[in-house]
Simulated assay, not measured.
Amino acid sequence: MGRPRGWAVAAAVGFVRACAVAAVTLLVPAVWAGAVALGIHWGAGNPWSWLLPLILVGTGTLALSGPVCRAVRFLVARWTGTDLPAGHRRPGPVGRLSTGYWWNGFSYERSRRDALLDQKWRIRWSDPATWRDLRFTAIAPFTAGLVAVLPPAGAAFAVLGLSGAGPAPPSVSPGCSPCCWPSARPRTRGGPSSRSPSASCARPRRWPWPTASAN
């Protein structure tokens, strides 16, 4: 009973993690698909009908890049114990001069609020981590997202096959869920698979190179 139970637990954990990764990494492509559908609905032959969808694609990608990267860092830290630092530049102090103007390190402003707002946007657009976040948000759906969507897609095909609502047989589910196979877990040579992480894997660690992350 121990081995079948362990297989079921490993498959369930893999399925839940695959669903979480698919939901996070495919959030931005869902915005892209909605914008394309909106452009087609307004008239695919009219170039002006694509102006608002393109604006939605740009603003949606910029707005969601931070939350997506934060969610990915959270999942990685929770599942592997690996700390992925954000790597964003920290804003400097904002001080008031004797002339009454506020200096934020870039420009003089009449109020502290304007100085902080100007500093925020200047740092955001000049920060290399911001552009790494955008690249990660655009690449992740085609790497991690496509792989992670296989288990839920296989389960959906199996449900459709059992209910008779679709042509897919139930056997499609295990075929589309390779990351849920317990046999795919790494095993030590000449021994069973490790059940507990090593000390180096259990404690948080930092990568020596810059990572795609969010604010």
Rank of each mutant, 00 (worst) to 15 (best):
P4W: 02
P4C: 02
G6Q: 14
A12G: 09
V13G: 04
V13M: 04
G14V: 09
G14W: 00
G14Q: 04
G14A: 11
V16C: 07
R17Y: 05
C19N: 01
V21L: 12
A23E: 07
A23V: 15
L27R: 08
P29H: 05
W32H: 01
I40H: 15
H41M: 06
W42E: 11
A44K: 10
S49D: 09
L51Q: 15
L52W: 13
G60C: 12
G60R: 04
T61F: 06
A63E: 02
G66T: 14
P67C: 03
L75E: 05
V76Y: 08
R78V: 01
W79P: 01
T80S: 12
D83P: 03
R90A: 15
P91Y: 05
P91I: 11
P93W: 11
P93I: 03
G95D: 15
S98A: 12
S98Q: 07
S107N: 09
R112G: 12
R113D: 13
Q119L: 00
W121S: 10
W121H: 12
W121C: 10
W121K: 12
R122G: 05
R124D: 12
D133V: 14
L134S: 08
P141R: 02
F142E: 02
A148S: 04
L150P: 14
P152A: 04
V159Y: 08
L162N: 00
S163G: 06
A165D: 10
G166V: 03
P169Q: 13
S173V: 00
S173T: 09
C176I: 08
C180E: 00
W181E: 10
P182L: 08
G191A: 10
S193L: 12
S194P: 13
P197C: 05
S200Y: 11
P204G: 05
W209M: 09
P210C: 09
P210H: 08
A212H: 01
